[in-house]
Design a protein around this nucleic acid. Structure first.
Lengths: 223, 223, 223, 223
DNA sequence: TATGAATGAGAGTTCATTCAT
DNA sequence: TATGAATGAACTCTCATTCAT
C-alpha cells in the first residue's frame, strides 16, 4: 500500500468516524428531545413535527433515524431499560450480593434513577402504558427482565443467608410485587407529587416494607 | 287541580318513570359497550362511532349521555372505583376489621374483582393511564381514595392488635406500596398473562408478602 | 294503526326519501367533480382536497361517501363501464343483432361515447392505467366484460350470416383486437388530438377496418 | 509536444476511455434496475432510493446520470422505442418489403419483442401511461413514429401489390388501428395473463385479423 | 330525544431532490 | 464523480364533535 493511499485511507476513515459520531449525536438529540416532550406533554399529544422542532432538525430527519413514532418510543424504552437495570444491578453488586446489597439496590432505584431521571421514569411508568399491542409487548419484556433480575438477586441473597425457598411461596409473585412497589411509589411521589427531596426517606420506607415481606419469605424457608 | 288532570299527571309520571328507566338503561348500555371496546382495542384506538355501533345507538345519542369521549372514560372510572372499593371494603368489614379482614380484603381484590371484572381491571390499570391531564388527575383521586381506605384499615388493624405506629415508618408509603402490589400483580397475571384460574394462589402469595411487610411495621411499632 | 301514526310514518318516509335523494345527489356531485379533475389534471396529480373543493364539500364528506381515493376511482370506472356497455349494447340490439348492428355499435362507441363523454373516455383509457394492482384487476374485469360482449355479438352475427367459426382462428383474439382498435383510436383522436368533429369519419373508417378483419373470419369459417 | 506528454496523454486517454466505458455501464445498470422495478412495482410505487439500491449505487449517482425521475422514464422509453422499431423494421425489411414482410413484422412484435422483453413491454404500454403531460407528449411522439413506420410499410406493400389507396379510407386510421391491436393484445396476454408460451399462436391470429382489414383496404383501392 | 351526515383541523408518513463532504 | 444525510412540502386519512332535521 502506498503512502498516499494510506494517508487517503486515514483521511477517509477520519471523515467516516466523524460522520459516525455526528450520526450518533443526532440520534441522541432527537431521542432526548422526544423524551422531554413525551414526559411533559404525553406521547399522543406530541406530534412528530414538535419533536423535529425541539431537536432542531426536519421532520424527514426524524424519520431517517426512526422508522416511525412507535419505533421512537420503543428505542427510548430500550435505552431506559438498560440504564435502569444497570443502576439497580450495579448497586447490588457493589454492596455485596447479599441482603444489604438488595437494600441498596432498592434505594438506588429511588435516589439515583427516579431523582436524576424523572423523565425516563415517566416514560416507562406512564407514557409507554397501553399505547399499542407492540409497545405493550415490549414493555412486558422489559418488566420480565427486571423480574428475572430480582429473582436472581433474591436467589443470591437466599444462598448468602444460608436458607432455601420452600415451595409454599412463589418467588415470582414476590418479585412482581416488589416491581409493583417500585413502580407505584415512583408514580405517586415523582409524577403525581413532586417530592424529589423526600425520595430518600420515602425510598427507605418502601425498601423497609419490602424487606419485611422478603424476610417473611426466608423465615418460611427456614422452617 | 281537577281529577282528570291528576289522572293525566299520574299517566305522565308513569311514562316519565319509564323514560327514566330507559335513559338509565341506555346510559349503561353505552358505558358497557365502551368498556369492552376500551379494554379490547384500547382507548385511543376506539372511535366514538365504534362505541355507538356496539351500543346500537347513534353517535349523537352517545353525546347526549356523555359530554365527550373523556367524560365517558371518567364516568367509567368512577363506576369502577366505586365497585372496587365496595368489594374490598365489604370483605374487610365482613371478616372483622382486623388482620384477618385485611387479608380477606386483599384476596377479594384478586379473586372477586380481577377474576370477575377483567375489563374493569384493564380500564383502571391500563387504559386510563396517561391519557390527559384531566383523566390523570381523576385517576390520582381514585388511587388516593384507595390509599385512604388502606390507611383507615391499617389503623383499625393496629388498634385491634393493641399496637400504635411509631414515627419511624410512614404508613402512607406502606399503603402506596400495597396499592402497587395489587396493581402490578393484576397487570402481570390478568392483562399480560391470562392466569385467571391461578389467581387464587397468586393472590394468596401476594397477600402473604404484604402481611410480612405489615407485621414488620407492627413489630417496629411494638418496640 | 292510527291515522296519526300513518301520517307520521308518511312524513318520516318522506324525509327519509329526501335524505336518500340528497345522499345520492352528493355522491354524484363528488364523483363528477373527481372525474373532471382526474381527466384534466391526472389521478395522481389530483388531491382529495381539490376534489372536495370542486364538489363544494369538506374532505371528510368525500371520505364519508368513498372509502379512499382508490375506491373513488373504482366506483367511477364501474359507472363508466356500465354506460359504455349500455351504449354499445343498445346500438347493437336496436339495429338488429347482425352485421349491420355490429357496425352501428362500433360507430356508437365513437360518435356517442367518445364524443359525448370525453372525460369518461380519458378515465378508462388513461387515468385508470397502472395505478395499483387493485385498480388494474378492476380494469381487467371491465375489459373482460367488454370482450365477452363482443364475443356474444360476434356469435350472433355469425349465426345470422349462416356461418360457424372454424377452430383455426381464435375469436377471443379477434375480440381483444377490436377492443384495441376502439381504445387506441379513441386515445389518439380524443385525448392526443381533439378531433371530436371528425370522429364520425374516423369511427367509420375504423369500423370498416374491423369489418374487413371480421369478414376474413367468416370467409375462413365458410371454407 | 514532448514524448513524455504524449505518453501521458495516451495514458490519460486510456483512462478517459475506461471512464467513459464505466459511465455507460453505470448508466445502463441504473436504467435496467429502474426498468425492472417500474415494471414490477409500478412507476409511482418505486422510489429513487429503491432504484439506487437495486443498481448498487447511491441516490446521488442516480441524479448524476438522470436529471430526475421523469427523465429516467423518458430515457427508458427512448431506448425501448428504438428497440421496438428496429425489431419490427428489421423483420419487414428482411422478409421483403411486401405483404409477407408486413406479416412477419407483426409476428416479430409478438414473438420477439413481447416474449423477450416483457418488462419493456410493460413500460411502454402501462407504466408510461398518464404519468405527466411531458411523459404523455413523449409517448405520443413514440406512437406517432410507429404509426409513420406503419404508413410507410403500408405504402410499400401497396406499391408492391400494384394498387393505390382510394381517398375513401384513411390509411392513418388503419395504422392507428393496427397499433391498437398490437398494444391491447400485448397488454392482455403479457401483462394480464402470462401467456408467453401461446404468444406465437395469438400473434398469428392477431396478424391474420389485421391482414383481413388491410386487404379490405386494398380491394377497396382496386375498385 | 334521537339521528347520522358533515365538518375540518391535525396527524403520521413519504419521497423527489439537494448539497456539503 | 460519488455519497447519503437532510430537507420540507404535500399527501392521504382519521375522528371528535356539531347540528339541522
Amino acid at each position: 500500500m502506498s503512502f498516499k493511499k494510506a494517508a487517503t485511507a486515514q483521511v477517509a476513515s477520519k471523515s467516516a468516524l466523524r460522520r459516525q459520531r455526528e450520526r450518533e449525536h443526532r440520534y441522541q438529540t432527537i431521542l432526548t428531545a422526544a423524551e422531554k416532550l413525551f414526559a411533559r406533554e404525553g406521547y399522543s399529544q406530541t406530534s412528530m413535527e414538535q419533536i423535529a422542532e425541539a431537536a432542531e432538525v426536519s421532520v424527514g430527519a426524524v424519520y431517517f433515524y426512526f422508522k416511525n413514532k412507535e419505533d421512537l418510543l420503543v428505542q427510548m424504552m430500550d435505552a431506559i431499560g438498560l440504564l435502569l437495570r444497570s443502576i439497580i444491578g450495579n448497586a447490588f453488586i457493589t454492596h455485596g450480593e447479599n441482603l444489604e446489597g438488595f437494600k441498596c439496590a432498592g434505594q438506588a432505584f429511588f435516589e439515583d434513577f427516579c431523582v436524576n431521571y424523572p423523565e425516563k421514569c415517566t416514560i416507562i411508568f406512564r407514557e409507554s402504558v397501553g399505547k399499542s399491542p407492540e409497545v405493550e409487548q415490549y414493555r412486558k419484556a422489559l418488566f420480565d427482565q427486571c423480574i428475572q433480575d430480582l429473582l436472581s438477586a433474591l436467589s443470591l441473597v437466599c444462598r448468602h443467608q444460608g436458607v432455601t425457598y420452600t415451595g409454599k411461596f412463589s418467588p415470582e409473585v414476590v418479585a412482581v410485587s416488589i416491581m409493583g412497589i417500585y413502580e407505584r411509589v415512583a408514580y405517586q411521589y415523582v409524577m403525581w407529587q413532586d417530592q424529589a427531596e423526600h425520595l430518600k426517606r420515602i425510598g427507605r420506607d418502601a425498601v423497609e416494607f419490602i424487606l419485611g415481606g422478603v424476610q417473611n419469605l426466608f423465615s418460611e424457608a427456614k422452617k
